[in-house]
Write a protein that binds this DNA or RNA. Structure first.
Lengths: 203, 203, 203, 203
DNA sequence: TATGAATGAGCCTTCATTCAT
DNA sequence: TATGAATGAAGGCTCATTCAT
């Protein structure tokens, strides 16, 4: 067992690399971004990067596994603060809305989208993706919706699974368009409209 | 001096290359797919491909410029068949639904998504993309919605531009999730749900 | 035996190709110039060019074998017009001087130089080159010099072969510098100076 | 952050590549010589060569910028050793004469000639060439000649610039013929004759 | 651990030449 | 004879990864 300090150091270093890699991948795409790009950005040596990660792909996967504000883990905690299901859903939309100005939000969306594409081509990653989509994102929403049905907030004819899928698909689409069109896309307005529409459809 | 081969022959050849390229790009992604992959698939020679296209990117762009069932040009024509705005919107959802089984629909979506990502990084392509998004897709919907408002089908408080953006974003998101998760994604059900939700929100 | 007319036609065509090829080779160099360049310039088809020449190299060699104003064949005839050896030498310098303005003189020099380089690497061409240098160019001068010695115009201590070599080397060098530096090189003045110097050294 | 390898190491490596490239370029010409040829000769990896040079052309230019025994820099130093202008001129001829046996002299001349041709087609390189020809080679000779005129060694009617151009053109031509014809060319004799002729013309 | 030089497989593209029409 | 599409070998260059220091 290596000492804790060393482990912390490793973690800090990995995190640093991941952050710089995110920008590189967002800027050029995973394939087009080179290790040398990350080297330049992170001001680390090429060898160093390979002490912390086994391959470029490894950095990519680590980057996607990273905790973000919208990770389900974190999301679940946050949602506990609300009693109403509708409020919970409102809250999720608002989290996205609050990302609007964030400097690296578009970067994250781009990398996320590309990673989906990438993973859809790799059997192992694809399984992981499906697993995560199903058991994490979908389930978080399904729980909220079921809860809402029980509480009488949401009409019982709603198919939670379908509705949950629609929920995340819609957000994905909005984020994606935003990441591509940026200033030419009315991100916040569309999110607000989507929120109203989605909630209306549940009631 | 009449050309040895007809213009139609050239067009047929280009189309052939594009079709094989679509599969290759979908399978591996634009970057990872090699000209040799296209050579193998199309059973043409490498040189031949370069007689019809200037570069790999050129094939990519041609592929995206291709007329499809969902091209706005075609869409506008089709929409004229309907009187009601709501019916028009229903129709668009149904076009997508009808793609569900189509062999290369997922390929098309993947390539479309990746192209968006790709274009968002290239100033020239990006301008083209924004132009097209705005003046084609958005406007088609805006026209339908405005028409619906005039006809009293759609509530006048609707902001057509926002609603139009939401419409296409939602479809993009649904298609994207479908292309990534495939059998694990209830494409048709989600589309049906989205249709109901969207229409409800307009009334 | 094909009819004479057809042979003339072939010759005319070949000549045409050669002329366009000269410009292409001069502009880009033999290697960098492509058959397509010649196609574009000559407005013939690629296939046509290959009916008259077996290969790019073939055009190159034909181009070098072409009769020019400075070809020894032609030169010998011209020199007969002069009685004095010194006058003959003067005349040769003046031929070069008269090329100064000629539109394609620099092209010819460039192609000539490059062909020398090229031929020096190909055993067959190299033999041809040596043969031609020796038995043609050198001998023309040697004859003139020997004649001059006999006539008492040129001092008998002159080694004709060395002097002949020096003569052509000097001209080669002057032409070469001119072709490279063009307007920045005082071609005519240098030729005049060289003429004076060379003649002085013979007497 | 000290570099892992010293600057001298890098310089040594570059030099090594240049030396092998010289042979390759001389053997086949710049265009025909491939990076793989240099790889084979130098026994380095392809990637390695690209760590030290940006492109094939880059190696070519570096090769031409290299210090040689006949570089003006070096020449100027050497010429200081002589008081008499005539002696200086003699000395330059003798330097060339001393190259006669040198293993890579012919290679150098070939590459030099081809580079001139090459540079005459590239605007940037052409400017460099003209600059260098004028301000270096020509000026070295002009200085010697002017000095000689002042000292009464050289007749004052001589136009130094013309004479200087003739000087280098003549040497270029002699070297070029030698490089092409090799054993079939009486290099040393021609140089000796040229020396006598040139000096005689100055007095 | 840190560094960056070394490696070489792999890719896009070019182009001389062939050949069916 | 004329045309230009088809061919595929070959070449310059990149870049993920390794490894000696």
């Amino acid at each position: 067992m290596t000492p804790v300090v060393s482990e912390e150091y490793r973690e800090k270093k990995k995190q640093e690399i991941i952050e710089h890699a995110l920008v590189c991948f967002a800027e050029k795409g995973f394939q087009a971004a080179t290790i040398d790009d990350i080297v330049k950005r992170s001001k680390m040596s090429k060898g160093s990067i390979y002490t912390y990660f086994q391959s470029k792909e490894d950095i990519y996967v680590a980057l996607m596994n990273e905790k973000t504000e919208i990770s389900t883990q974190h999301l679940k905690e946050e949602l506990k603060k609300f009693d109403s299901s509708i409020e919970k859903i409102r809250f999720i939309f608002d989290i996205f809305k609050s990302q609007a100005g964030r400097s690296n939000w578009i970067d994250r969306v781009k990398v996320h989208t590309e990673f989906y594409l990438h993973a859809s081509r790799d059997p192992d990653l694809r399984s992981l993706l499906i697993e995560r989509a199903k058991h994490y994102y979908i389930n978080v929403l399904v729980d909220v919706l079921e809860e809402g049905k029980m509480a009488g907030e949401i009409k019982t004819t709603t198919d939670s699974e379908i509705a949950a899928n629609l929920f995340w698909s819609m957000l994905d689409g909005i984020n994606f368009q935003y990441s591509a069109l940026q200033d030419h896309y009315p991100y916040e307005d569309v999110l607000e409209e989507a929120k109203a529409m989605y909630i209306k459809s549940l009631m």
